[in-house]
Design a protein around this nucleic acid. Structure first.
Lengths: 151, 151
DNA sequence: ATAAAGTCTATAATCTTGGTAGTCTTTATG
DNA sequence: CATAAAGACTACCAAGATTATAGACTTTAT
């Protein structure tokens, strides 16, 4: 049940881009290098990840001098589930319980397969969290922990 | 977030072994071949899986003619979480939120890392299901679905 | 014109997955 | 006690995924 480095780096980068821009009200724009340095990641690897997120419509970019990446939508409209699926594929532990990309698994009768029933619960539990947590929610939560360390 | 074949086959086998023995009150005993045939799995691959579960104390076996595998404990005392961890390792998506096998991840401050906070929720959601579902629960659920198909 | 930045494709080095194969040990039983 | 059935154990392997690295190309500000 592991999150790949690809997924991890992508989520970290998106969270970084969701932080409010230091000055001005324009959406936060950052360069690959900037994010890579800040998160301690290979810039070339991150490049591929951001490109995938861009092609999926979650990021926009500006080329050329002074360019960079920025969120394609307000941070409240981008969920971790969307990001995760682009980078790591379906959330479901087994294909036969996937909502977004179902495929039958081997069992003779899916309706009464005990494993499938439980894995369906697992997939729902994960999806509920990831699909109902936006980047804005993450930022909010980070800030509230920073203000109130004990909790 | 995928369940490996190793994990899948192991869970299926354990569920099969948790089914009440056809006759008598002794714990259900089955041979590798028997389970492999029933689940459509390579017997040699299943062998390794069952061996791991045995070495982890979840299964007992009887060698020699008429031997086989059987649950080491009543099916109500073996959880899917125990089985999963033996075969697929920690439940947590990132090591830094693992309860059973913690390791620090890269972030500068773990306490305020947004990704870590969310992944902690995910790990708890998964663990809550797997650690509170016993093999007996799975059998019960299978039977109730069989009796009452619509739900 | 130039340099800074993203785009795109290919390749490489591990690691993981999903097995297969073979030998050894134990045990029931004829 | 010979034999065959069964698990125990170890080694190995092919294919694919993962985690990058490299380099050539395109766009754009100045």
């Amino acid at each position: 049940m592991r999150l790949s480095k690809r997924g991890e780096y992508g989520l970290r980068a998106m969270i970084a881009l969701a932080e409010p821009a230091p000055k001005g009200d324009a959406p936060q724009m950052m360069q690959i290098k900037e994010i890579a340095l800040r998160e301690g990641i290979s810039a070339k690897f991150l490049e591929q990840i951001l490109l995938a997120l861009k092609n999926a419509g979650l990021l926009h970019s500006k080329m050329g001098v002074g360019g960079g990446y920025y969120l394609a939508k307000p941070s409240s409209e981008i969920t971790l589930g969307q990001i995760f699926r682009v980078l790591d594929g379906p959330v479901a532990p087994v294909k036969c319980v996937s909502q977004m990309s179902y495929e039958p698994c081997g069992c003779p009768d899916e309706a009464t397969c005990g494993l499938r029933l439980v894995m369906g619960d697992v997939r729902n539990a994960i999806a509920n969290i990831l699909d109902h947590t936006s980047l804005a929610d993450v930022i909010k939560r980070q800030n509230s922990v920073r203000k109130n360390p004990g909790m």
